[in-house]
Amino acid sequence: MNNRLIVGMDGGGTKTRVMVKESLDGETLFDQNFGMSNYNNIGVEGLKPVFSEIYEALFACFGERLQNAILVLGSAGVDRPKDIDIYLNALKESGFTCQLEVVNDAEIALVGGNGDRKDALMIAGTGSIVMGVDAKGNTIRSGGWGGLISDEGGGFQIGLHAISAVMQEYDKVISPTSFTDKLLGHFQLNSPEDFMDLLYLEDTIPVDKIASCTPIILEAWVNGDEAACTIVEGELNKLVRLVVGISRQIASDNFRLSVAGSLLTKSSEYFDTLKNKLSITLPQVELSAPLYDPVFGAIIIGEKYK
């Protein structure tokens, strides 16, 4: 029996979940959360302290067995060989000498969501992306090109359009919204004009901060606010178009579409409305809750290396 350890790591912008198993159907030997490990958020220099803490916790549990383990890390922003090297170097500098594999966090979410590397996945949280696997096993994608030009249906786009609606109300272009005062309170602003300080005074656009107001807009949408309905329904329609793009690339309209990201896993209204829209445009696509968490997707990938 091969009792080689498989270490799965889901490295996100808020936390890093680490799971250890010997086999897919075996006992979970370790499952803990650590600090964030997305270098786009904490910088390259911020990776080593997090990975060192993880290494010390794992070594305390497994000792020398860790040297022969398989570690699969899925992290946001892993799109280029340069990104992979950054994570590999940080892991090695933190003490890891075992076999290391680094992939995009969407890859482990797809594998976990569908139980294997097949079909498709939609992520909608702060940003968004739809990715899938074609008949030749190639990974394909639609969207996910960043908030300035893409990330349709994600929290950043919803928040940005909501702020725009507040400014349009301020200019008497549209009727008053039900969420203007709530947005001002959420961002601790005295006037709509203060959004200029929020948006333009920093060197970078505060993507996460803008996305943080999404629950306010979703609530207004559910309650029938006209501006919120225009925003949310428009972004949902854009998500449908991303799935159409994946369908064209796969050359099929019959596949399972697993979901990940807070907008689709925590808002039943958002999920259900998207499902209804998809059923009209692509009735054979099966929009589904994930079978397993992304960290278990990393375990599934690691199992293939045993």
Rank of each mutant, 00 (worst) to 15 (best):
Leu242Asn: 12
Ser52Trp: 06
Ile250Gln: 03
Leu242Cys: 13
Asp225Cys: 11
Phe96Ile: 08
Asn190Thr: 12
Ala227Thr: 03
Leu47Gly: 08
Asn276Val: 05
Asp194Trp: 14
Lys306Cys: 06
Met196Lys: 10
Leu66Pro: 00
Gly261Trp: 12
Gly95Leu: 15
Ser128Tyr: 08
Arg256Met: 11
Asp181Gly: 11
Asn223Trp: 07
Val259Asp: 08
Asp171Cys: 10
Gln284Phe: 00
Ile301Trp: 15
Leu278Thr: 02
Thr281Lys: 06
Pro215Arg: 08
Glu235Thr: 02
Ile205Trp: 05
Glu101Gly: 15
Ile210Gln: 01
Pro81Asn: 07
Ser288Met: 09
Cys229Asp: 02
Asp208Pro: 06
Val133Asn: 04
Gly113Arg: 13
Trp221Tyr: 14
Ala162Thr: 04
Glu286Gln: 10
Ser288Asp: 10
Val18Pro: 00
Asp225Ser: 14
Pro49Ser: 15
Val44Cys: 14
Phe271Ile: 00
Arg117Pro: 11
Glu303Asp: 06
Ser164Thr: 08
His161Ser: 14
Val259Ser: 10
Val285Arg: 00
Val102Leu: 08
Leu218Asn: 01
Val173Met: 08
Ile70Arg: 04
Pro176His: 15
Tyr292Arg: 11
Asp83Thr: 02
Cys98Gln: 07
Ile42Asp: 07
Asp116Tyr: 11
Leu100Phe: 12
Ile174Ser: 02
Ser252Asn: 12
Thr230Trp: 01
Asp194His: 15
Gly127Ser: 09
Thr97His: 14
Leu110Tyr: 11
Arg248Glu: 05
Arg4Pro: 12
Ser247Asn: 02
Trp221Arg: 09
Gly127Asp: 05
Val44Leu: 15
Lys304Ala: 05
Trp221Lys: 08
Ala220Asn: 00
Leu218Pro: 01
Thr281Phe: 00
Leu239Tyr: 00
Ile123Cys: 04
Leu278Met: 08
Cys229Ser: 10
Tyr305Asn: 08
Ile250Glu: 05
Cys61Gln: 05
Leu24Asn: 08
Ile205Cys: 11
Asn104Phe: 10
Ile129Gln: 04
Glu303Thr: 09
Gly132Phe: 02
Leu274His: 00
Ser37Leu: 10
Gln67Lys: 14
Ile42Glu: 05
Leu100Thr: 15
Val18Phe: 01
Ile174His: 10
Arg117Gln: 12
